[in-house]
Computed example of a mutant assay.
Amino acid sequence: MEQIGFEFDVQPRRLSKVSPARLATFDDCPRRYRLAYLERPTPQRTGPWAHSTLGAVVHNALRALFDLPVRKRTPQRAAALVTAQWKDAGFADAAQAAIYRERAQGWVSDYVESNDVEMDPVGLERWVSAPVNPETGEHANPTMIIEGRADRIDQRGRELVIVDYKTGKRAPDEHEARASQALAMYAVAAARTLRMPCHRVELHHLPSGTIAAAEHTPDSLRRQLVRAEETAGDVRNATDTLEAAGEQDAADSAFPPRPSRRCSWCDFRPSCPAGQQAAPASKSWDLLAP
């Protein structure tokens, strides 16, 4: 989506609105980006994935937990919230779903037992947005608008902290937290939206109970924004090419497939012959942590 900005004595500038999800989708596979965000009606997709269902349940349970008064944020209530939020979508059968429901209950109850849940976050599933210019700083004319929804934003002392929940197979480390473009974008946007410094980002891995944290510097945040702007420029050029041509050949050229093993579990596999040829189809529960 494009937005027109106006300033006196300055040519109108198109500001691209970019989110971590859109940028990551384009980086992974331009064709998937087109199918997800540009094609209308949206092409055929796969059914639900069990690992996505599991992640959504845990996220929703923790959000509901922090909406409760502090005295009610107990391990038992956390486990009950998993039950209340639970869905079986994507699991092999009811028996497998029951196994992972019990695991998720243990994850969130252990999380409440091991972490401080008495503070009230300043944001839960909070949408943050900010105009930025990666090259010349906060007060320069913006070149794009970054936006997205952060799982949780804490205030610790006089600074904000971005918290992102993970339920995947592998526990993340400090490098992954520092390298996450999404967390960096949330940190910048949260600082501008809430008008407080934000440099610390954390990945909370529920299955292992570990927390991977990183402290950003102004330079490391700027590098992530520069990378985001480069991808945003590629998206804009591809979109302009498609709009100018309006033909299927142009769509395939501007948004080519990028086949990889990820094609096995791509949502748009049913609508992408290149993905079908690149890798065998995964079962909807194959990405669950063992």
Score class of each variant (00 low, 15 high):
1 M>G: 12
5 G>W: 02
11 Q>S: 12
15 L>G: 09
33 Y>I: 10
36 A>G: 14
37 Y>M: 12
39 E>Y: 01
42 T>W: 04
44 Q>K: 11
44 Q>N: 06
46 T>A: 01
52 S>T: 08
56 A>G: 10
60 N>F: 08
63 R>E: 15
70 V>E: 15
77 R>N: 14
78 A>R: 04
82 V>C: 06
82 V>I: 15
82 V>N: 03
83 T>C: 10
83 T>K: 11
84 A>S: 11
92 A>T: 04
94 A>P: 03
97 A>P: 06
97 A>Y: 01
102 E>W: 02
111 Y>F: 15
113 E>K: 14
114 S>T: 08
117 V>Y: 05
123 G>E: 13
127 W>T: 13
131 P>N: 11
135 E>G: 14
138 E>L: 06
145 I>S: 09
146 I>W: 12
154 D>Q: 14
155 Q>V: 02
156 R>Q: 15
158 R>C: 12
158 R>M: 08
162 I>E: 07
164 D>G: 08
166 K>R: 06
169 K>T: 11
172 P>C: 01
174 E>R: 09
177 A>Y: 05
188 V>W: 05
205 H>D: 02
206 L>S: 03
209 G>P: 12
211 I>V: 15
215 E>S: 07
220 S>W: 08
221 L>N: 04
221 L>T: 07
229 E>Y: 10
250 A>C: 04
251 A>F: 09
253 S>W: 02
262 R>V: 01
266 C>P: 05
266 C>E: 03
269 R>C: 11
270 P>K: 07
274 A>D: 14
276 Q>A: 12
276 Q>V: 04
278 A>F: 01
283 K>F: 00
